[in-house]
Amino acid sequence: MVTSKYRSSNMIILSILEAIFRAEQGHYLTKKGIVKSHLLKRCKLKASTAEKYLTKMEQAGYIISSKEPWGEREIIIYNLTEKGKERYRWFMQINAELE
C-alpha cells in the first residue's frame, strides 16, 4: 500500500532529523551535531539501513556531514541544513495543530 511505504520511510527520516535536531540544541553554543554511531543508537537503526538513509538525506539536502579527528581516527558528525530543520518543524507543526 502506497501510504505505508511513505510512512515507514518517513518515520526513519524524521527520527534521524529529530535526533540531529536535539543534539544540535544540546550543543547550541558549539554547533557540534551528532556523531554517526550515536545517531544509529539513538534511532535504533541497523548500519546498512542508516547508511542508505543518511546518504539519501544528504543528497536531498536535509543533512550535512563533516569529518572530525578523534584521536587517531576520524568520526563523522551530522548536522541539519535549513531544509532539514524546516521539514522537521513542518511535520511537528502539522501534528501539533489543534483540531
Binding site: 511505504k5 518517513n10 527520516i13 538513509y53 511535520f91 495543530e97
Partner: peptide, 25 residues
C-alpha cells in the same frame, strides 16, 4: 473529531509523499 482528524491525516500524507520524493529512496 474524525472529520478534523482526517483533514490532518491528509496533510501528513501529503507531507510524507513530498519527503519520500525528495529523498528519492
Amino acid at each position: 473529531h474524525f472529520l478534523r482528524w482526517n483533514k490532518k491525516m491528509r496533510k501528513i500524507e501529503n507531507f510524507e509523499k513530498l519527503v519520500f520524493e525528495e529523498i528519492n529512496l
